[in-house]
């Protein structure tokens, strides 16, 4: 297990979070962020389908959203 790399990633996350406290984008400055293509997942259904396809060919899963049930897509 690549624990060291994981720890460093988590440290980055906290650093980002504390840097984030300085960020104060006002609601009326969010025109750009509110655009559809700036959404984290512009097409949620497509992501679901895509993850279903690749997890039937690859051994990895998770990270995108909380994972629920599986399928026997072998």
């Amino acid at each position: 297990m690549n624990t060291r790399r994981l720890v460093s990633l988590i440290v980055i996350a906290f650093a980002l979070q504390s840097a984030g406290c300085a960020v104060n984008v006002k609601p009326w400055e969010r025109g750009t962020l509110a655009k559809e293509h700036m959404a984290i997942e512009p097409d949620a259904l497509e992501r679901t389908i895509f993850e279903q396809v690749v997890t039937s060919k690859e051994a990895s899963s998770g990270g995108y959203a909380v994972v629920g049930g599986g399928c026997g897509c072998n």
Partner: peptide, 17 residues
């Protein structure tokens, strides 16, 4: 998951599952 607005035109997300 943490999603952080970085400025008016970018954001960053970090998820661990």
């Amino acid at each position: 998951g943490v999603t952080q607005v970085l400025n008016t035109s970018s954001l960053l997300q970090l998820n661990v599952s």
